[in-house]
Design a protein around this nucleic acid. Structure first.
Length: 574
DNA sequence: GCCGTTTTCGGCCCGACTGTTTTCAGTCG
């Protein structure tokens, strides 16, 4: 089962969607959305809270608290069930399509009885939509584009969802009888930004008991295939998970093979052939004699081929084999190297946790420094003012020193306006320890305008970091169309770092952009953009992306000691 | 449905863009 907070969050969000689709009170829907977010981001396990504990969560009142208790007690909520009975689940899926909101989705359902993405596709192709009020040829095009975007991920899911499932299953199987080792492999181990299915490996002498344990897991909704070497299940959330049981002495070969990527495996096998070996998921063998050479660990196999162990995040056939043969693999940045988070929010703007709670959680992560960077006034919906941000600065200064080993930085996340201008004049910006600047609007400007806009932001001496540089959201929105080579060049010239935003929905810059930017000599900040304490652990995904971009500690400014970081952040210090 | 240094009612995130309209509804961030 997923974390109870997330289950409750999903339920409340679903109810909010259903209220919106049925044309219910918009403020009621918003209240449910807000409560959903607050519970999802709440630090304590909601299933352990009583009514009083639930009411203490901001945005949760008596009505919602009681529904949460009803859900935790019975597994469902009567009011949500009633709403579900009115609206088919497929209608709710429609609003996941960019450009399609609740109103249009409901109209499609009422007028054309469309209740799935497939039915919608058929209707578009038959030009049935054009006659509907508010629809036209352009709308049809946009819907097709939106569906394409949605399906571009090819049914793949975000890395955090896959990771949760994988870690839960490996923990449970590790406890099963006869399990000598258990790990997840595949694209998840390589930290790809989206995951198709999860591969779990177990080392055991006898496979049957583990296969049985696997199919009996609470998360298993359906057994797709059930064999001696491989069993596939579908989880309650529709994710496919494959379990393979390996003989313990073939662990390394299996892990190597099932971690991939396919392209990396092909390169490694080619190398094996040149050594007159044959590599399979069972081990490294002499071609002639068929005799096994090694198979127990990845290290041994790589070593026999003249390679150091190659970190999974590099196994994409992007030159890692050649670099390994020259013994020039980068010493990749790790999560342990990260000394602080440089982009986080509080409930002063759109975060759900108060400053003190965020700082407390950061301290528990063992950070040496932590930056609070709430939104600036030009993101109008956040209603930031000079007075509010200055009052926050006072609170940050007062809190600084409360945690012996962690210093606090007071910053802001500025909005890069259409012309590249920022929310506050330079004199005001000078008062911050740190300015992150990000694009939040006007995504459809021309390539030239977008490029100039980003470069102008880099050229402001107070801007130290460009936040989520492309603004893409995986499966929802493509990145902006700027000339990023020109932007990277400007970052290198002005000493402006690029963010690797660790939120699983963003991962922005992405691995390939990181690789490209690094060649310009750009520095990076791996930050979470946390809006709740539960987002702080997203750091691992940002670090994974950094590793996939071949970054070392030196490349990442938030691995640096505070003094060196402060010098970098200072205008003119770069 | 939630909330309160405008406190038990009456507000609630504001502005821009898009595509459809012919003055605006829907969607998004």
């Amino acid at each position: 089962m997923a974390r109870p907070n997330e289950e409750v969050e999903a339920l409340l969000q679903e109810y909010a969607d259903l209220v919106t689709i049925t044309g219910g009170d918009a403020y009621k829907a918003r209240a449910y959305e807000k409560a959903a977010r607050a519970i999802g981001g709440h630090h304590a396990d909601v299933s352990r809270l009583d009514l009083k504990g639930l009411l203490a969560i901001p945005g949760v009142g008596k009505s919602i608290a009681e529904k949460v208790l009803e859900y935790l007690r019975t597994g469902h909520v009567a009011m949500v069930e009633e709403a579900r009975a009115v609206i088919p689940a497929g209608v709710r899926e429609l609003i996941a399509i960019p450009m399609l909101g609740p109103k249009k989705a409901m109209l499609l359902y009422e007028e054309l009885h469309i209740s799935s993405v497939d039915q919608l596709l058929d209707a578009v192709h038959e030009h049935k939509l054009r006659d509907l009020k508010g629809f036209g040829a352009r709308t049809e095009e946009n819907i097709l584009h939106g569906i394409a975007l949605l399906q571009q991920a090819g049914g793949r899911i975000l890395i955090d969802a896959a990771m949760d499932v994988a870690e839960q299953i490996t923990a449970e199987l590790s406890e099963a009888g006869g399990c000598e080792r258990c790990a997840y492999a595949g694209s998840l181990r390589r930290m790809r930004e989206t995951i198709g299915d999860v591969d779990i490996l177990v080392a055991a002498d006898s496979s049957a008991p583990l296969m049985e344990a696997f199919t009996a897991l609470p998360v298993t909704a359906e057994v797709i295939a059930h064999g001696e070497k491989k069993t596939s299940i579908r989880t309650t959330k529709g994710l496919q998970v494959d379990l393979r049981v390996l003989p313990p002495d073939a662990w390394g070969a299996g892990l190597l093979y099932f971690t991939g990527s396919k392209a990396h495996n092909i390169r490694v096998r080619e190398l094996a052939v040149r050594h007159k070996y044959k590599l399979s998921e069972y081990g490294l063998f002499h071609v002639k004699s068929g005799k096994k050479i090694v198979s127990a660990t990845e290290e041994e196999i790589y070593a026999r081929l003249g390679l150091p162990w190659i970190p999974p995040t590099l196994r994409e056939d992007r030159g890692e084999i050649a670099a390994g043969l020259r013994d020039e693999l980068p010493e990749l940045v790790t999560e342990d190297d990260i000394r602080g988070d440089l982009h986080t929010h509080t409930d002063l703007t759109d975060g759900v946790a108060p400053l003190e709670a965020m700082v407390e959680a950061a301290a528990r992560r063992g950070y040496a420094y932590y930056a609070v960077t709430d939104h600036a006034p030009n993101l109008y919906m956040q209603r930031m003012t000079d007075a509010k941000i200055l009052a926050q600065r006072e609170r940050v200064r007062a809190l600084d020193g409360k945690h012996r080993r962690m210093r606090l930085l007071h910053g802001t996340e500025l909005n890069i306006g259409p012309d590249g201008d920022l929310d506050w004049p330079d004199e005001f910006l000078a008062g911050f320890d740190l300015c992150v600047a990000s694009v939040h609007s006007h995504f459809n400007q021309s390539r030239d305008e977008l490029t100039r806009r980003l470069i102008r932001a880099c050229e402001n001496p107070h801007v130290a970091i460009i936040g989520h540089p492309t603004t893409r959201q995986i499966g929802k929105r493509p990145g902006i169309d700027a000339d990023f080579d020109a932007v990277f060049e400007a970052c290198a010239r002005t000493g402006t770092a690029l963010e690797i935003n660790s939120h699983p929905q963003r991962l922005d810059l992405c691995d390939e952009d990181v690789l490209r930017a690094k060649r310009y000599g750009v520095k990076f900040a791996v930050s979470t953009d946390a809006h709740s304490v539960t987002h702080l652990p997203y750091m691992r995904y940002g670090v994974g992306t950094a590793q996939r971009g071949w970054l070392t500690k030196d490349d990442v400014i938030n691995t640096w000691p505070l003094q060196k970081l402060r010098r970098f952040l200072r205008p003119g210090g770069r």
